[in-house]
């Protein structure tokens, strides 16, 4: 193959590479492993912000002091009854709760009735449930959409955050390994 032929083939090579890259990205997006809109959390490695939130049926409300007093890894999940991906991730939350991980829920910008209806319909994975109707505590956490999940270590330091639904791939490839390092 001479130089001219190589040059003629080069655009096709570039197109094939771009196509392969695009295909990989789409596959990762579909599995929930990659989110092009993802914004990294500023809380990783830092203690949770101070807050207290009122109760949301069926759980009792909680604050930062309660999360720290728990003294073991806990998943904090921001959810809402109006949020479709929250329905998608719900079976994962139920499975994690069955396996013994404490999950504390915060109903984001929701009414009491709608949020408790959501839990009644899909099952309750939460040890405690609080509500953040104005969404101000969520802003302190850096939440920019629901669902968002934060894994805290025993001292209340944020170790991991998922912005978006917890898919089986996210749980097995990210959350479970992180839980093992905290155990």
């Amino acid at each position: 193959m001479n130089r001219r032929q190589t040059l003629l083939l080069a655009p096709f090579g570039v197109a094939v590479l771009a196509g392969a890259g695009f295909w990989t990205v789409l596959g990762r997006m579909k599995a929930g492993r990659f989110d092009p809109h993802d914004v990294p959390s500023q809380l990783i490695g830092r203690p949770i912000p101070q807050f207290t939130l009122p109760a949301q049926e069926p759980g009792q409300g909680f604050g930062s002091a309660d999360l720290i007093a728990l003294g073991r890894p806990v998943l904090v999940n921001f959810f809402a009854s109006w949020c479709v991906p929250c329905v998608i991730e719900h079976p994962e939350l139920m499975a994690l709760a069955r396996d013994g991980l404490p999950i504390w829920g915060i109903a984001y910008k929701d009414t009491v009735a709608a949020a408790s209806g959501f839990i009644a319909r899909h099952g309750n994975p939460f040890t405690r449930v609080a509500r953040d109707a104005p969404g101000q505590v969520a802003i302190d956490w850096g939440v920019y959409g629901v669902p968002e999940s934060y894994l805290l270590d025993a001292k209340g330091v944020v170790r991991w955050r998922m912005a978006g639904p917890l898919t089986p791939a996210v749980v097995s490839e990210q959350l479970q390994p992180m839980l093992r390092t905290l155990a």
Partner: peptide, 8 residues
């Protein structure tokens, strides 16, 4: 920025 990072 302290809550959402430089991307904001």
């Amino acid at each position: 920025v302290s809550r959402y990072g430089d991307f904001v």
